[in-house]
């Protein structure tokens, strides 16, 4: 990843400039260029994330707790990852209403994901007192 960071930055600058060039003629094409650039860079990053995720899973496995907490964490990371992309693309299209709806749905998904953990925590606390 370290040696590719320059390529990513150059790619994003080129895409931004191409977007500006296209904006004068028709706005939709400019949006498409920015969406394409975001998708490509995110695809590139997610491929570098997978070894990181397996390492995190190993670390959590070593803690000895039977529960698989790391899976919930990784899932919420994925949800944030995609929701942020959708949110920013909608904001680029000046569609703030749709953007907030996307963000809200992401938050609700995260809450639903975290409910079991909260439940365990409450049971644990009540058992202590």
């Amino acid at each position: 990843m370290v040696e590719n960071i320059l390529m990513i930055i150059a790619l994003c600058i080129i895409a931004a400039i191409l977007g500006k060039v296209l904006e004068k003629y028709n706005k939709e094409q400019a949006l498409f260029v920015s969406i394409a650039a975001c998708t490509i860079v995110l695809m590139f990053i997610v491929l570098y994330l997978s070894p990181l995720i397996s390492m995190i899973n190993d670390l959590f496995a070593r803690t000895g707790t039977g529960e698989n907490y790391s899976q919930t964490i990784i899932k919420s990371l994925g949800i944030c990852y995609v929701t942020q992309l959708g949110f920013d693309i909608c904001k680029d299209c000046n569609e703030n209403a749709i953007a907030t709806v996307v963000e809200l749905s992401g938050k609700v998904t995260l809450i639903i994901l975290a409910i079991p953990l909260l439940e365990k925590l409450i049971f644990f606390l009540t058992s202590i007192i």
Partner: peptide, 20 residues
């Protein structure tokens, strides 16, 4: 069409990597 195909690839990759 090109963009949708590209986004489809991204979502599938994210789905498999993060185990969504």
């Amino acid at each position: 069409m090109i963009i949708i195909q590209e986004i489809g690839n991204l979502f599938n990759t994210v789905k498999s990597v993060f185990g969504l």
